[in-house]
């Protein structure tokens, strides 16, 4: 177990290095002239060159790459080209909004997906199964921004017209500072994000559950005279959950940094918006910082899933 974790951590560092180097190389190949943007349209060539020199962009590629590696390895993500603030603190400012967005939505889609999945598996081809199939199709095919806009239109604009002001989109507010406003701002984004993903979990749980329910050990459980409820949940769902949890871990990690649309539509200042603006502005240090963070989340989530596996399934040994 210990050796497994060490090996996976070393492997994770390798992944982080590969990912950040690739992004670094790609950004260098297609540079956005950040110095011109900072200097403004009327600046002289000399000013632009000075800015370029100050940012260190006139140095050879390998020197830039080496200093990036060295700084990153010592925990220094550098400064934003545009705002001059530390990349680490920029990310730290934006991270809570995104984490809350992802985890809140995760609870919704995990619980919702598994419940619907189990119900449609146990009553396959019943009314609920058919209704959920329709919603799954809608969830899978509707573009994220449209879903978010529809929710805003209904629950904010229309409800507002009817005098109900339950949902107030706007900037992220810490739940510690103002719990009510936190919920008012977060519920719609949670719903929008969860709705996109819940469909996948419903399908996944339904399929996994149908497979498990036709296993011999489920027949044994029934032959033992257990209640149907116990057969379905204790014996069926317990075995069906393994692939769902694997997917859950991977999705959680990958969503940090890719909730751009949801954050944009609801005006949440999270990591997604930071990604968006830094790419538009060619703010290389910020792009690299967020890339590293996202990759780190994916690596850690995968590690947790793999370790969790050995607890979920006694047949899996970590060696």
């Amino acid at each position: 177990m210990f050796r497994f974790i060490i090996r996976r951590l070393l492997f994770g560092i390798l992944v982080l290095w590969l990912v950040s180097s690739t992004v670094f190389g790609l950004l260098h190949l297609s540079p956005t002239p950040v110095e011109k943007m900072i200097a403004g349209p009327r600046a002289s060539a000399a000013t632009v060159a000075l800015i370029r020199h100050n940012l260190g962009l006139d140095r050879p590629f390998l020197i830039q790459y080496w200093s990036f590696l060295k700084n990153t390895f010592t925990g220094d993500l550098g400064y934003s080209y545009v705002t001059q603030s530390k990349v680490a603190s920029l990310i730290a400012d934006r991270l809570p909004a995104t984490l809350w967005l992802v985890f809140g939505a995760a609870v919704l889609w995990f619980v919702g997906g598994i419940t619907t999945g189990v119900l449609s598996a146990t009553k396959a081809r019943g009314l609920l199964d058919r209704v959920s199939t329709v919603f799954v199709l809608i969830g899978l095919s509707i573009p994220p921004f449209l879903m978010a806009l529809l929710l805003l239109f209904l629950f904010f604009t229309k409800f507002g017209d009817w005098g109900i002001h339950l949902f107030q989109p706007g900037q992220y507010v810490s739940p510690l500072a103002d719990p009510t406003m936190f919920l008012q701002r977060m519920i719609l984004p949670w719903l929008a994000l969860a709705f996109l993903i819940v469909a996948t979990y419903t399908r996944l749980t339904r399929g996994s559950m149908m497979d498990v329910l036709s296993e011999d050990y489920i027949r044994t459980a029934r032959a033992k005279g257990l209640s149907e409820r116990r057969v379905v949940y204790r014996h069926g769902l317990r075995a069906a959950l393994t692939p769902v949890i694997t997917q859950f871990g991977v999705d959680l990690g990958a969503l940090i940094g890719s909730t751009i649309v949801t954050e944009k539509v609801f005006g949440l200042q999270g990591i997604g918006q930071l990604v968006y603006s830094s790419i538009v502005q060619g703010d290389t240090p910020v792009i690299l910082g967020v890339t590293l963070l996202t990759a780190l989340f994916v690596v850690v989530a995968n590690l947790i899933v793999d370790i969790g596996y050995s607890f979920l399934d006694p047949r899996v040994r970590l060696d």
């Binding site: 005279g225 149907e228 317990r238 979920l312 006694p314």
Partner: peptide, 27 residues
């Protein structure tokens, strides 16, 4: 009724199946 039958299964009539690996819950 299913519930009457459930009470009999296992306690009055029990079953042994063909493949003992797949018939026991692996977890």
């Amino acid at each position: 009724t299913p519930d009457q039958l459930r009470r009999i299964r296992g306690s009055q009539i029990s079953m042994i199946f063909q493949d003992p690996l797949s018939s026991l819950h692996p977890l």
